[in-house]
Amino acid sequence: METLKTKKMKEVHPMEDVLRMNRIPHIWCPGCGIGLAVTAFAAALEKAKIDLNKVAIVSGIGCTGRVAGYIKLDSFHTTHGRAIAFATGIKVANPDLKVVVFSGDGDLISIGGNHFIHAARRNIDMLVVCVNNFIYAMTGGQVAPTTPLAAYATTCPFGSVEPPINIPYLADSSGAVYVARWTTLHIRRLTNSFIEALDKKGFSVVEVISPCPQYYSRINRLGDGLDMMKFYHDNTEIRHGEDTKNLDIGFQGKIIMGKFIDRERPSYTERFD
């Protein structure tokens, strides 16, 4: 084994073209899946045939909200829930840009839910990556709109009493042109999904189911990140084209993944011109 000191300075990660390596190590906990979503996204950026100078990435607030700070693009870390609205302004003002919104479930679906619906309805040409870890992690494990029924969180100590939202169904019914869901374990399929969605004209949504070892797993006694990854291995099923109505996720229930929607609709900027 080489010693740390001799090896350290020489190591150059191949993704340094699309990552701000001077910002890494990042803030996420050991076993957290957000890093995996970023890895897949970085790999997709390298593989997709797009001009990286023309891509902007916008994040909101939360653990996933920090993603924009680690990706070497024109990147914006904005107010809680307003990432899609901010990105809409960018895309409408300069339709030549490709805009990516990378944020969490609480940011995009709870406080930013209205912006999500209306950007999908307008079919603003952007890729929305929603990292779903079933909980508000940065604030310490509060119940999120995606927390499965009966799962514990610090603000529902007797189990969540609110039925969770089905993100692909919401995106589908609001008019998104591309909807897919993968877990962080299915990293290559996730990468391919990102590449496809980056190519797609219109409002594309990729939901990434991600482990939160520090809060969701700890409060619900589900083990660490690796245990969650093993759970994803055993309890997921790929069903491409599945009706988005059937994609609810119960507590430790089966997770159906795949590409559910891939259709064509004229985007906002196309219609505006």
Partner: peptide, 24 residues
């Protein structure tokens, strides 16, 4: 650490599954 260096078939799965960008 790398236990069996000769076994690696360059599948890059460890690189893709590293959330910390610490392996390639």
């Amino acid at each position: 650490y790398i236990k069996n260096p000769d076994e690696c078939v360059e599948c890059h799965l460890c690189e893709m599954l590293c959330p910390e960008f610490a392996i390639y």
